[in-house]
C-alpha cells in the first residue's frame, strides 16, 4: 500500500497560539480516515494547512508534508496550486455559505475544470452535467443555470461535492460535510460520499465532531484535542476499547450510551485556550486518571501495533496502566 499523504510534526501558529501542535497523520491510497474532536481542537486547521489555505498571521511548520512524492513545503506556489483543487480537494462545512451566491452552479463547477483540465466550453458543460448526475441531482441539465439560493441545503452540499470531485482527486477532504443537514439528508450525503470514494478509489479524510458518523463510516479514527492528536486507532477498537482518557470521556458523554440515566457523565472544565495552556499533558486538568507525572511531563505521541496514543498511562480495557 503506497502512502498518499504523510504529515509529520505539523504545527500551525497564529500569533503565538498553537492551533495545531505536532500532528502526525498518514493516509494510504484509497483509504478512509476520520478525524474527530470538539470545536477548537485543530481538526480543520490541519487540513487547511495541507491545502495551503491558512490566512496571514498563521505560520506553518512541519518536518514532513508529503503528498504523493512531492514535498508540499518545498513546492513553489504555482506548482502547489496545480495539486490543490486537482489531486487534493475539499468539501467545506456549511454548503449554504461556501458557494458563491453571485454565480451559477455551472460556472462554479466548471471553474475548477477550466483551470486544471482546460477543454472547450462544450466539453466542460458536458462534464458538469455528468458530475451533477453523479452526485444525484435530478434533471441536471435544468440545474446548470440555478444560483445557490435556489437550492436546498442537501442540494447545495451535492453541488459542493460535484465541485470537489470535478478533477477526479486522489485525496478528498470532507470537512464536516453533514453538520448543517437533517438526519435523513445526512444519511443520503454520507452514502453518496462513501459510494464515490469506493467507485473512484479516492482516499478520504472525513472531519467531524459527531462520533456516531465516524463510527458508521470510517476505518481509522484520529482523535484530536487542543491541537494535538491524542489517539489513533481503528474504528472497531476505539469505540469499545479507547486508549486515551479523553476519548473515553467523550464516548461516555454521549446521550446514546446513557439512555436510561438521569445524568450524563461530563468532562469538567474547558478546552484550554491561548492563555491557559497547562504544562505537561494538555488534558490533565480534566482527566480523571491524572497523576503527578501528567502535570509535569509532556507525554510523547507513540505508536505501537498501529495504535497511536499521547498519554503516559494509556487505558487498556478502561483501566490506566500505572507501571
Amino acid at each position: 500500500m503506497t502512502k498518499l499523504l504523510e504529515i509529520e510534526n505539523l504545527s500551525v501558529e497564529f500569533d503565538g497560539f498553537k492551533a495545531v501542535d505536532g500532528v502526525n497523520l498518514s493516509v494510504d491510497e484509497g483509504k478512509v480516515v476520520g478525524i474527530v474532536g470538539e470545536s477548537g481542537s485543530g481538526k480543520s486547521v490541519t487540513q487547511l494547512a495541507l491545502m495551503g489555505l491558512i490566512p496571514y498571521p498563521g505560520i506553518i511548520k512541519a518536518d514532513r508534508l508529503m503528498f504523493h512524492n512531492s514535498d508540499l513545503m518545498a513546492l513553489s506556489a504555482k506548482k502547489r496550486r496545480s495539486i490543490t483543487g486537482k489531486d487534493v480537494s475539499m468539501i467545506f462545512q456549511e454548503p449554504m455559505t461556501s458557494l458563491n451566491p453571485c454565480f451559477t452552479v455551472e460556472y462554479q463547477i466548471s471553474e475548477a475544470l477550466k483551470i486544471h483540465e482546460g477543454g472547450t466550453r462544450q466539453e466542460r458543460r458536458k462534464r458538469v452535467i455528468e458530475l451533477l448526475s453523479q452526485v444525484g441531482i435530478p434533471a441536471p441539465e435544468d440545474r446548470l443555470g440555478t444560483f445557490p439560493h435556489q437550492l436546498s441545503g442537501g442540494m447545495s452540499q451535492r453541488v459542493m461535492i460535484a465541485m470537489a470531485i470535478a478533477c477526479s482527486p486522489r485525496l478528498l477532504i470532507a470537512d464536516e460535510p453533514t453538520t448543517a443537514l437533517d438526519v435523513t439528508i445526512q444519511a443520503q450525503i454520507l452514502e453518496l460520499i462513501m459510494d464515490l470514494q469506493q467507485k473512484k478509489n479516492m482516499a478520504l479524510v472525513l472531519i467531524t465532531h459527531d462520533m456516531a458518523v465516524i463510527a458508521e463510516t470510517v476505518e481509522d479514527v484520529v482523535v484530536m484535542y487542543a491541537g494535538q492528536v491524542v489517539e489513533k486507532n481503528s474504528s472497531d477498537r476505539i469505540f469499545t476499547n479507547p486508549c486515551h482518557p479523553y476519548t473515553e470521556a467523550l464516548l461516555n458523554a454521549l446521550p446514546e450510551r446513557n439512555i436510561n440515566s438521569k445524568r450524563l457523565p461530563t468532562i469538567p472544565g474547558l478546552v484550554p485556550g491561548k492563555f491557559d495552556r497547562p504544562d505537561g499533558c494538555l488534558f490533565h486538568p480534566r482527566c480523571k486518571h491524572a497523576k503527578k507525572m501528567c502535570k509535569e511531563v509532556v507525554p510523547k505521541y507513540s505508536e505501537k501495533n498501529s495504535i497511536g496514543v499521547r498519554c503516559h498511562f494509556p487505558l487498556i480495557n478502561g483501566v490506566p496502566q500505572y507501571d
Binding site: S152, G154, M155, V183, T184, I185, Q186, A187, Q188, L190, E191, D210, M211, A212, V213, A215, E216, F239, L251, L254, E256, R257
Partner: peptide
C-alpha cells in the same frame, strides 16, 4: 422508522438497517 434508522450510532448493536428515504 426512517428517522430512527438514519440516526448514526456509535455502538454496533444499536445500529439499524438503513431505510433509504429518497428525495427531500
Amino acid at each position: 422508522m426512517a428517522l430512527l434508522a438514519a440516526t448514526p450510532h456509535v455502538d454496533v448493536k444499536s445500529r439499524q438497517k438503513r431505510i433509504r428515504l429518497s428525495g427531500e
